[in-house]
Computed example of a mutant assay.
Amino acid sequence: MQTVLKSHKIQVIRPYGCLNATNALEFERDLTTTLAQEDISNLFVDLADVESLDSSGLMALVSALKLAQNLSKGFQLYSVSPAIRIIFELTQLDGVFEIFEHKAELAV
């Protein structure tokens, strides 16, 4: 379902395929487990390989964002395709999440 790259205090999670009701709980568990680690200060989610996102996948991201805020940790999304970005825009969550087009734009 995903690949994980780890660096000092930064972790990148790269989900792929569909983020939907079938795997949203596992995805959310991976996000929250990562955020709960004391040595992680920023979590970046690379959505480049995500083909579709339903409300369950979106709620997993929202839950992780809330947890990151409560833990005073960074949580950013990047490489969001136009098809996925429209979901954030339609739900008006594009103003809630930090969304970057490319990895190079991330504020590390």
Rank of each mutant, 00 (worst) to 15 (best):
G57I: 10
A36M: 09
M59I: 10
G57S: 02
L31M: 12
P15C: 11
D49P: 05
V96R: 10
L65N: 10
A21P: 01
D94H: 11
N42E: 15
I87F: 14
L71P: 00
R85I: 08
L31P: 01
I84D: 02
R29L: 04
S52N: 07
L77C: 08
N42K: 07
D46H: 10
Q92W: 02
T32Q: 02
E28L: 07
G57M: 01
K66T: 09
N23T: 00
S55K: 04
V96P: 08
A24F: 05
V96E: 11
L53P: 13
Q69T: 04
Q92R: 07
L35E: 12
T22F: 04
V80Q: 07
L58S: 05
L90H: 12
L58P: 15
F44G: 12
F27M: 03
L71N: 08
Q37T: 09
P15W: 09
E26L: 08
A60W: 02
V96T: 12
F97A: 03
A48E: 02
L77V: 11
V50R: 04
S72A: 06
S81I: 00
K66L: 10
S41G: 01
S52V: 00
L77K: 10
E26W: 01
V45F: 08
G74H: 11
E51P: 14
T32G: 00
N20R: 07
L35T: 10
N20D: 15
D49G: 06
A60G: 05
P82Q: 10
A60H: 02
A64C: 07
F97V: 06
A36P: 06
D46I: 03
N70V: 00
F27L: 01
L77Q: 06
F88V: 15
T34G: 08
R85M: 08
L77Y: 02
S41M: 10
Y16A: 10
G57D: 03
S55I: 12
A83V: 08
K66W: 09
E51G: 14
A48S: 08
E51F: 09
T22M: 03
Q69P: 01
E89A: 11
L31W: 12
L71T: 04
S63Q: 04
R29H: 04
L61R: 02
T22Y: 07
E89V: 15
K66E: 15
G74C: 10
S79A: 15
T22N: 10
R29S: 09
E89W: 03
I84P: 03
E89Q: 13
I87C: 12
G74T: 12
F44P: 13
S56G: 06
V45E: 07
G95V: 08
I40Y: 14
E26R: 09
A83R: 14
L35C: 03
Y78I: 04
N23H: 02
I40V: 15
I87Q: 14
K73C: 03
S79K: 15
T34M: 14
I84Q: 05
N23D: 02
V80M: 05
I40R: 14
N20E: 13
Y78F: 14
A83W: 04
A48N: 04
F27P: 00
D49W: 00
N70S: 12
P82K: 12
V50S: 02
N42Y: 14
S63I: 00
Q69C: 01
E26P: 00
L65F: 11
L35Y: 04
V45G: 11
G95E: 15
G74S: 11
E51R: 14
D54F: 02
S81P: 13
L77H: 06
R85K: 14
M59Q: 12
T32L: 03
